[in-house]
């Protein structure tokens, strides 16, 4: 397993968050091993339904998942052994900054919050809030830019997906934008008005 030697031997006390460390490898390997073992002993018996006639055969629905879990456990154990050996040899290895992890965690939380927001407030409203929040997080401080994007982008996407592609958007628990659906009626009325008035206008012109 190769390592970014220049960064590992760096005299700096911190490394970039994308640079793998021996400590991180140990944690990752342990987690992978845990996933493999939990998958084999806990998840597969509980979450894979096997018809009685196929129990223990290679044609069982659980056969390949078990094989993969065994492989995952074996590979992760090897990874763990190698990474522990590297960790011992690494000495005072530089760490990635805690602030970087907090920033990454905050962005991941924004993504998770966005999903929760979609379920509660609907895709359009949640997207408007999320894009505004994310723009701010990314360093955009011009309120006019944030407001313009937060209004135009979700509105355009709503129109494209709901009205042109006819894709049913998720129904939220709190339908905040529900009253705005009444505007559809105004839109239809406007279209009918235009469609009827154009021939009349043509007739007058003639």
């Amino acid at each position: 397993m190769s390592r970014d030697v220049s960064s590992a031997n760096s005299t700096n006390s911190h490394v970039d968050i994308d640079t793998p460390t021996a400590r991180g490898d140990v944690v990752a390997a342990a987690l992978c091993l845990g996933c493999g073992l939990a998958g084999y002993f806990l998840v597969i018996p509980d979450a894979v339904y096997v018809p009685k006639s196929f129990i223990g055969t290679a044609n069982s629905p659980a056969f390949l998942p078990k094989v993969i879990c065994i492989m995952l456990s074996a590979l992760s154990a090897t990874y763990l052994v190698k990474s522990i050996a590297q960790f011992r040899g690494a000495g005072d290895e530089p760490r990635s900054r805690m602030v970087d992890w907090c920033l990454a965690g905050a962005m991941a939380a924004i993504c998770a919050g966005y999903v929760a927001g979609i379920l509660v407030f609907g895709l359009t409203f949640a997207s408007a809030v999320c894009v505004a929040g994310t723009l701010y997080f990314f360093g955009e401080r011009r309120l006019a830019v944030i407001a313009t994007i937060a209004v135009i982008l979700p509105s355009f996407l709503w129109y494209f997906f709901a009205k042109i592609a006819i894709i049913l958007l998720p129904t939220p628990v709190l339908n905040i934008l529900g009253p705005f659906s009444a505007l559809d009626g105004f839109g239809d009325a406007a279209r009918v008005l235009v469609a009827q008035s154009l021939p009349m206008a043509a007739g007058w012109a003639a």
Binding site: Y114, I118, C130, V131, F138, E140, L153, I167, P170
Partner: peptide, 24 residues
């Protein structure tokens, strides 16, 4: 600027992913 592009990408990716099968 990435400060505008990637927030927009996040929203587009979400709409795109949802649109494939219309499931949250």
């Amino acid at each position: 600027p990435t400060s505008i592009m990637f927030p927009v990408v996040l929203i587009l990716a979400t709409y795109g992913t949802y649109a494939v099968r219309s499931t949250m």
